[in-house]
Computed example of a mutant assay.
Amino acid sequence: MSDPDGAVPSLDDEDGVMAAYRLHGAEVYRFVLRGLDDPASAQDVTQETFVKAWRHADRFDPEVASLRVWLFGIARNTMIDHVRARRARPWQGALADPPTVEAAAGSVSDHADAVLDGWLVEEGLRRLAPHHREALVQTHLLGRPYDEVAAELSIPVGTLRSRVFYAMRALRAAMDEMGVSL
């Protein structure tokens, strides 16, 4: 994602980080809040996400992944670090309701992984040719039968199967470029 002018904010300075926060801060916060189910911790993790993005701005490569995907990766890792730190400091358990802490620990690895995986697949699908993306979405993601999709697209079933095959190959290559293993 980029700002309305189409430029990706530079994270090298305070203005760039603020622009990135305006673009993605609320979305990152909601993601973290769903994972931790604790507004105060979600605020801390969101803030730490943008601090880490600023400190490691040199690692961001818009050719590999969008700023949004990169920030969500940082947020996911920061959530995991947050939960691990809580587990390493049992005395902090007295400061929070233990069932809430345990529930948050389980939800980070389960829910956060699923959400991040969804965004990564979405980013990979954006990199496919439209006819490949449509074939893959219709058959694999929506689970529609090949003959039904082929009839709707007015192409032979064999052509659809070929498109799905090459779409999967292109998706694997796109995910490899983004540093994601399938």
Rank of each mutant, 00 (worst) to 15 (best):
L125Q: 01
A103V: 05
A57M: 02
D147G: 07
H82K: 14
H24A: 13
R30M: 09
I74N: 00
I155A: 10
Y21W: 10
R127V: 05
R84K: 15
H56R: 14
I74R: 01
A53C: 09
R89H: 15
Q47A: 14
A19I: 04
A129C: 06
H131C: 11
L136N: 01
G143H: 10
S66R: 00
H131Q: 11
M79K: 02
D117G: 06
R89T: 12
V115M: 12
D147P: 07
H82E: 15
A40R: 11
Y21S: 06
P99H: 06
A94M: 10
M79Q: 05
A104F: 02
R76M: 09
V108G: 03
D117L: 05
T100Y: 05
A40K: 06
D113L: 08
P90M: 11
G106C: 10
G93N: 09
V51S: 05
A85N: 14
V28R: 00
D117M: 05
L23H: 03
D61S: 09
A104P: 01
R22H: 14
A129M: 10
L23V: 06
E48F: 05
A104E: 08
R22D: 15
T49D: 04
P90R: 11
I155V: 15
D38V: 05
A105L: 06
F31S: 02
E27I: 03
P62L: 05
D58G: 11
E48D: 15
L153A: 10
E63M: 05
Y29F: 15
L33D: 15
V108K: 01
E102Y: 03
T139M: 05
A96F: 12
R84M: 13
